[in-house]
Design a binder for these strands. Sequence first.
DNA 1: AATTAAAATTAGACACGTCTAAAAATATAT
DNA 2: ATATATTTTTAGACGTGTCTAATTTTAATT
Lengths: 227, 227
Amino acid sequence: MYFYGNFSTMTRSEENYLKAIFHLGGLEHKAVSTNAIADRMETKPSSVTDMAKKLSEKGLVAYTKYKGVSLSKKGSQTALSVIRKHRLWETFLVDKLDFMWDEVHEIAEQLEHIQSEKLIDRLDAFLGFPKQDPHGDPIPSKKGEIQKEYKKLLADVPVATEGICVGVKNSSAPFLRYMDKNSMALGDTIEVLEKEEFDGSLQIKIRNKQIRISNDIATNLFIRPNE
Amino acid sequence: MYFYGNFSTMTRSEENYLKAIFHLGGLEHKAVSTNAIADRMETKPSSVTDMAKKLSEKGLVAYTKYKGVSLSKKGSQTALSVIRKHRLWETFLVDKLDFMWDEVHEIAEQLEHIQSEKLIDRLDAFLGFPKQDPHGDPIPSKKGEIQKEYKKLLADVPVATEGICVGVKNSSAPFLRYMDKNSMALGDTIEVLEKEEFDGSLQIKIRNKQIRISNDIATNLFIRPNE
DNA sequence: AATTAAAATTAGACACGTCTAAAAATATAT
DNA sequence: ATATATTTTTAGACGTGTCTAATTTTAATT
């Protein structure tokens, strides 16, 4: 039996389920299907059903047989607290320990379950109360408030925006090959120099080279604009 | 049983047992009794027996029925790695997050189980490769080498030594009351001004006040001498 | 509407780590 | 050396979280 703190009855597994349900159900707490959760967590639907019952008993989700689960207020607060911890730790790893932004996820998956409110408050302060993590995702406040995404599709930012390429929407092999071929990589700084109204193509600067990318590409790349 | 590279991962529970066995058996890996482990871990002897078998199967301890367990080389290396992590995290909490030295243990008990060699290497570097933790206990090297205790009994340090009071040997209520009455607290800086050969009493400076303490007191207080 | 396909649930099993209660081995005392 | 006390182990159980295989419910198709 594992105790992480005196007043927390949440197990690691429960926290992971809540987090998955939050990500799938969005801020509106839409109902999420059993299979969707199983896919995301790489587990079996039967395991999800078991946990759904358990979380429902604890008042963390609303669960109706065959109708999926949706987070309660209490459930989403818990999920947000875990997400907050995850993103603060990721920020710590990148800002303080010089990790690359794309190698911190696994470690943060472990760190996010450390139970100590004081620890998280201190970490938050130590990092200068960051509002977004290295992937451009917003860090929920202590109260569970969460801002809109800081990362944007490259296609959606105005001309002259500069930022870091933090993700791809469609990580298909052909697309990744395209990026490779054009020597673009996640983590690169990108500046939008010019936008062609007609076809939505962009002139960008990346690695100090100018290249032209199509709208298709631009709608597949996430950028975290610099302040 | 045949393994390809002994890639068996350690569970949290196994790590905790190894750590307890290490602390009880000392650097010489003395055999440790079932009850001693149960006491230290606040568990039942029967649970310890179960785990002893398991650890023995994995080659982490030598176990003979009714004769206790002793760490193998592999087992002590694992224990030292957990202890290293524990002490590095404690150092982080105190040095970087401004925790008091006496409030970090619980949190470090959780953090010590985070699995990522790279993380610990980076943390070590970030902290400036500390050789001792906030309690004056030595931090094992990456290879598992461990130095002698840095903390010493106040009675054993030479005159003119200055350091921080990092622990008590006997934490009985009367002794703690004594400390309180003399406005001494763990964490205080202490300087040894004078030592009386005859009765071993000391003249010390603490909180900018000079007081005289008996040898009995001095053999109950741990000090971590400054470099 | 009936049939087929997909999704979700149940039933039963298992590994892990723990426990209690009873039995066995070892240590202590008379 | 025998009886008693202590320590340790075994046997059997439980809760958590997972799984497979079979069943039930819902969705999609003809």
